Simulated assay, not measured.
Amino acid sequence: MNADIAHSQVPRPESAQRGAPTRHFTIRLSATPKGARLARRLAAERLHGWGWPYETEANLTTALLVAELATNAVRHGRVQGRDFRLTLTLYQDDLATLRIELTDARADRRPPAPGTLPPASPETESGRGLLLVEALASHWGTTCASPYTKTVWCEVVLG
């Protein structure tokens, strides 16, 4: 586990060269299917307000990434009576980049490391969420800043 934490906390070169965030949004939501749906809708609304209209590829991709990560937070990171947190951070340097973070209450349940996801079985109806995140995000990972929470994050270039 320590190796995973050390690996996931190594700053990416893209992040290290980045300036201060241009926009920031964070909200706590109930760790329920309704909270996951609300996370997706709030992310789409926020991105629309920041200049990426609803039907743009950037907004649709963001909504999908948030939906997948929020669903995982509800399914695999839920602790009775504890919320999850959605954080969106927009960086507008050379290319506009959005960092999406979902923090849940299960630090003990970590997803596989990026690049090590097993392929989804054709017989199952689930197990494809992080494969979508890996395919659509420029990069993603997991951090544990405390013994009580974990954050699964991804970044997407908005263009």
Rank of each mutant, 00 (worst) to 15 (best):
M1Y: 11
A6T: 02
S8C: 05
S8H: 10
S8L: 06
P11W: 06
P11S: 12
P11I: 08
P13R: 06
Q17A: 14
R23M: 06
H24G: 03
F25D: 01
T26L: 15
T26K: 15
I27Y: 11
I27D: 07
R28T: 11
L29T: 03
L29F: 04
S30N: 14
A31T: 07
A31L: 10
T32M: 12
K34S: 13
G35A: 08
A36D: 12
A36T: 04
L38A: 06
A39N: 06
A39T: 06
A39R: 03
R40C: 14
L42Y: 14
A44M: 03
R46A: 03
R46D: 09
L47S: 15
G49Y: 09
G51M: 01
W52M: 04
W52A: 00
P53R: 06
Y54A: 15
Y54T: 15
T56K: 10
T56M: 08
N59Q: 09
L60C: 08
T62N: 09
L65T: 01
L65Q: 02
L65R: 03
V66N: 12
L69G: 02
A70C: 07
V74C: 07
H76M: 09
G77A: 02
R78T: 10
G81K: 04
G81V: 04
G81C: 00
R82P: 03
R82D: 07
D83A: 11
D83V: 02
F84I: 00
F84K: 03
F84T: 02
F84M: 05
R85N: 03
R85D: 01
L86Q: 09
T87Q: 15
L88C: 02
L88K: 01
T89H: 06
L90Q: 14
Y91Q: 08
D93N: 11
D93F: 02
L95G: 11
R99T: 05
I100T: 12
I100D: 13
I100W: 12
E101H: 12
L102P: 05
A107L: 05
D108R: 13
P111W: 01
P112H: 09
P112T: 05
A113R: 13
P114C: 04
T116W: 11
P119K: 07
A120P: 05
A120S: 11
P122D: 06
E123Y: 11
E123Q: 12
T124C: 06
T124E: 11
E125A: 07
E125L: 09
S126L: 13
G127K: 04
R128P: 02
R128E: 08
R128N: 09
G129Q: 00
G129W: 02
G129A: 09
L132I: 11
